[in-house]
Amino acid sequence: MTGPAPLPPVTAGSLAFRLAVAAIEGRFVLQTCCCCGHRPYPPTEICSVCLSGDLEWRDLEPEGEILAGTAVHSPIETYFHPYVPLPVVLVRLAGGGSLLAFVAPGREVRGRTPIGLRLSAAGAAVFVAGDAHGTQPFGGLSVRHGSDHRLDSPDPVSAAERLTAALIFHGIAHTGRHEMDRSFVEAETGGRTISIRIERTKADL
């Protein structure tokens, strides 16, 4: 390959960033409405059943049922091109609601399946069907308890930097310093740390 590798898309909004934090912490969480118990997804600030604005992130059983599947052969983002075809499934959660998930590499999924929450190389949270506890999400960084940052990408350092940039971008832009620091601490306790150059990035910001 010549030239710099294409960057992964950085697209998550502030609410979805909470999922990224959970992915770093090795948890499987979704929002639950404090008033009616509904579990909306994608992330929202208003319950679509009772219109309560009081939602909290709660741990769930990491399991769902496959409703439909495809594989992305033609990604819009060049970043994904080396990984095609990318198996993607629509998963129905036991308590209602459905989510998109990658399929864990080498797994066949049908019927009831475990679901894990991982961090992509873009710093976005992604669900992975077929493997609730694995450490190798497709094509991206795995930052989890007790694991090193590791990736399928040929340039771990720059990928780590990408993750850092994504986290700092999301942390400062959307959730504030406090949230950001906490997530970094979690990331750092996971083993060898990704080099997070907060000072430099603060200056950049």
Binding site: P9, T11, V72, I76, L86, V88, L100, F102, A125, V126
Partner: peptide, 20 residues
């Protein structure tokens, strides 16, 4: 919702959504 919960999954765009 697309940005947070669809696009990160390989950026298949509407093709992937309608495939499902």
């Amino acid at each position: 919702a697309s940005r947070d919960a669809v696009y990160p999954y390989g950026s298949g765009g509407p093709n992937a959504s309608f495939a499902l």
